[in-house]
Amino acid sequence: MNEKLKNNPVMKVLLGNSRLIVLLIMVVVFTVLTSGKFFTYKNLINILYAVSLYGIMITGAAFAVLVGGIDRTVSGNAALSGAVVAMTILTRGVGGGNVALAIFLGLGCGALSGLIHGLILSRFNIPAFLLTLATNEVLYGIVQFVTGNQLIYIRECALMDYIGQVRWLGIPIPVYIMIACVIFSYIVLNHTVYGRQIYSVGGNRISSELSGVPARRDILIAYIISGFMGALAGFVLSSMNQQASSTQAKNYENDVLAAIVVGGVSMRGGSGTIQGAILGAFLIGVIGNGMTLIGVDAIYHNMIKGLIIIAAISIDMASVPGSPLNNFLRKFKKKKA
C-alpha cells in the first residue's frame, strides 16, 4: 500500500480496527445481495434500533468482563427493572413524581443487584459465570413474583412514550441513549484512574493489589455499573414495548456476551475496548438483519451466529503465546515458510 494512503486518517482508523473493515464488507455484501434493500434509510434505522438495547447492556457488561469476571445477569436486571418501573406506574399513576420514583426504583434494583454480585465476586473465589448463571434465574423468579406472571401494560406515560416513539433527526431516542452510555463508558475506561485500574486488575489482580490498587472496590463498582446499565436497557425496552413481562429480555445476555467477544474483549479480562464491543454488536446485528433480508431461514441464524462466535474466540485464544492454538498456528506458518 502506498504511503499517502497509509497516512490518510480514514485509512488509519480502518487499519487499526479490522472489525470495522469486516463490518463495512458485510454492509457492501448485503447491499449487493439484496440489490440495495439492505442499504436503505429505513433498514439502517431498524438495525440501529435493534442494536441500541444490546449496546446499552454492553456498555455495562463489558466492565465485568474487562475486570476479569463475567455478568450474565444483564437480562435479569433488565427484566426486573422493567417490571419494577411498570408496577410502580401501574400502582401509583403516571404523574411526574411517580415516574421519577419508578425510574429510580427500577435502576436502583439493577444497581443493587450489581452491588450484591460485586460484593460476592470480589470477596469469594466463586466462578462469576456460575454465580451469575444461577442468580439470573433467581432474578427472573423475582420478576415473575413482581408482575404476578402477567403482561403489564404501561399506558399514557409521557416520558416512556417519548423514549419509545419519538425520533430526533430521524433517529430513535434509544440510539441516543446508547451513544450516551458508550461515551460514558469510553471516558471512564480511557480517561479515569478507575478505568486504568480495571484493565490492570483484569490483567493481573495480584500485582495490582500489591501496587496499592483497591481491586475489591474496583470489581464491586464494575458489577454495579453492569447492573445499572442492564436496568437502564430494561427501562428502554419497556418504553419501546410499552409493557413489561416476566420474560422480558430473556437470553439477551448471550448476544451481549457474544458481541463483547466478537468485539475483541478478552474473556480472560484486562484487554479490549468498548468501541470494539459495540462494533461486535453491530456485526451481529448486521448479519442477523442481512440474513433475514436475503431470506435465509431463521433456523440458520443461530447456527451462523454460533460460528462467528467460535471464530472470534479462536482469534482470542490464538493471540495468547504458548496456547495450543497459538503453537499450532506457528507450526503451520513455519511449514509454509
Partner: peptide
C-alpha cells in the same frame, strides 16, 4: 510474572499504576 505486572499492559500503564 504472577505478582509483579499486568502482562497485557504497556510499561507506561504498569508504571503509572502506583502513581495515580
Amino acid at each position: 510474572r504472577t505478582q509483579g505486572f499486568s502482562p497485557l499492559l504497556s510499561v507506561t500503564k504498569n508504571v503509572a499504576l502506583t502513581s495515580y
